[in-house]
Amino acid sequence: MASRRSKHLLPGFGLTLGVSMLYLTIIIVLPLLAMLLKVGGMGWPEFWRIVASNRSLAAYRITFSSALAATVFNGFFGLLLAWVLTRYSFPGKRLLDALVDLPFALPTAVAGLVLVTLFAQTGWYGQLLEPIGFKVNYTQLGIIIAMSFTSIPFVVRTIQPVLEDVEAGYEEAAKTLGATGWQVFARVIWPTILPAFMTGCVLSFARSLGEFGAVVFIAGNLPGLTEIVSLLIFIRLDEYSYEGAAALAFVLLLAAFLTLLATNTLQSWQVRYADRST
């Protein structure tokens, strides 16, 4: 390749640039563009009528509040798991570490099937929970549980490496100066892992906003009560209302872009943090 004489030392610039551009254009950019054109062609009043309809607004509210609740749970659970996995040694630790990724390895449809069966009236968990008044299937609680399950690994995996890197020296110094265990955590460790924690929470939230497979099994899908945005898109397609589907998909896409932007900002904050501490 001629590039060896050019400013690039290594070969393959032309080849990899060509293949990458071709593939990314056909597989990723062109389909996204097709949808944006569809939305662009429908006119503002039509677009607004769809995205601001009562049914859509109810779907945003349910999706958003469920994703928020799922993220709060995953924040606590993820912090607990990451802490236990990095700070303590105990039998079965490697197994637990491997299990954390199960929600990513298990197909979402299987997760949905398992959850709806677990929480059914006669299911392993349902028969214990329903007598004390917790109904999970076909309620918003079910949506929250499905969203939490499918996004468990995010918080664990983003704070784990940072927690491993917090130098024991700082903790020791704080202890020598008379700090209690809780003070060490609140003043020394928490500020260090905060950016990573936030990144994990944003990723978990973004995943929950778009989750479909696990949720449809357990949600019952009642308009205005347990109907999430992804499902409403699916229903619009079934009704051959392609404008409706396109407009709502655009809203979800916009939400995804905003979260991506938030993660990038958080990550540069994290890098600054890391630079300062060295």
């Binding site: 389909p31 949808m35 479909f212 992804s230 396109a246 979800l252 995804a256």
Partner: peptide, 26 residues
């Protein structure tokens, strides 16, 4: 661009393909 699909909801991924290759699509 290569990271984009990871941020897109699975339903949206299906919808964008529908609007490219579907009967109503580009």
């Amino acid at each position: 661009v290569i990271e984009l699909p990871a941020a897109v909801s699975p339903i949206v991924a299906g919808v964008v393909y529908l609007f490219l290759y579907g009967g109503q699509g580009l």
